[in-house]
């Protein structure tokens, strides 16, 4: 059997720019506020929510315009920043300093919409697939334990599909990507807290052999 490795490493540098924009529809509605898909947050006077997503390592920075804002990142993958650690190459997959080593995308409660801060990560993996057409990827969707189990399977499959759809736009072939929804069956962490639930609502990017 080929080994399949899961990378749970989260790069604080890249996610440090992570901000939750108050007006972003997929982040905040009455449901998410009540059920609290955001682990800790403060609402500023202008309605901007800043805070920590329970994704581990992501610290809040106030900026309403973080979506696609390059200035929030110290570097972008594919750019030559002198040490080639950010090249979109197969070698990058095993380099902990490369964005490609990051393999988890987190979601809001009962939502399959991609948070803006994950677009760069998703696009980077998509570009890798486009560059290596024989490379295969599995997108494993998961949900937190709330709500019904079979609905959560569908929800987590939809999350994986959302990621796949964006990757398709970036040139990855549909045949390279397989999606699977595990629902709430394989939690990363135990516990009935907003933080635990946030960590469990995720899509894991998996490459065979990497």
């Amino acid at each position: 059997m080929r080994s399949i490795r899961t990378k749970l490493v989260v790069l604080p540098i890249l996610l440090s720019a992570l901000t939750i924009v108050g007006c972003s529809s997929q982040n905040v509605d009455k449901d998410t506020t009540a059920d609290g898909s955001i682990t800790s947050s403060t609402t500023t006077e202008d309605g901007t929510k800043t805070g920590t997503v329970g994704a581990g390592g992501a610290s809040g920075v106030n900026s309403k315009d973080s979506q696609g804002d390059r200035s929030n990142f110290n570097y972008l993958p594919g750019e030559n920043n002198g040490n080639n650690t950010n090249d979109i190459t197969l070698a990058g997959l095993n380099n902990p300093d490369n964005l490609l080593s990051q393999r988890i995308i987190y979601f809001d409660y009962d939502k399959a919409a991609i948070r803006p801060e994950y677009m760069v990560l998703i696009n980077t993996h998509a570009k890798l697939l486009a560059k290596y057409p024989s490379l295969k990827m599995r997108l494993e969707g998961h949900a937190d334990e709330r709500g019904s189990r079979a609905y959560n399977v569908a929800l987590s499959e939809s999350r994986a599909q959302s990621v796949k759809n964006i990757m398709g736009v970036q040139g990855a072939l549909s045949s390279q990507i397989k999606t699977i929804g595990y629902g709430e069956e394989i939690p990363i962490v135990r516990g009935q807290s907003q933080e635990s639930w946030q960590k469990n609502r995720r899509v894991e990017i998996k490459y065979d052999d990497y």
């Binding site: 079979a150 399977v153 569908a154 499959e157 939809s158 599909q161 699977i180 929804g181």
Partner: peptide
């Protein structure tokens, strides 16, 4: 391909309703 989920037998036992996502959404 995708999800094969939530089986439920028809009352006469000849069919199984289920949720499938091979066409896109479940």
């Amino acid at each position: 391909e995708g999800s094969n989920s939530a089986p439920a037998w028809s009352p006469d036992g000849t069919k199984v309703a289920m949720s499938l996502s091979f066409n896109g959404s479940p």
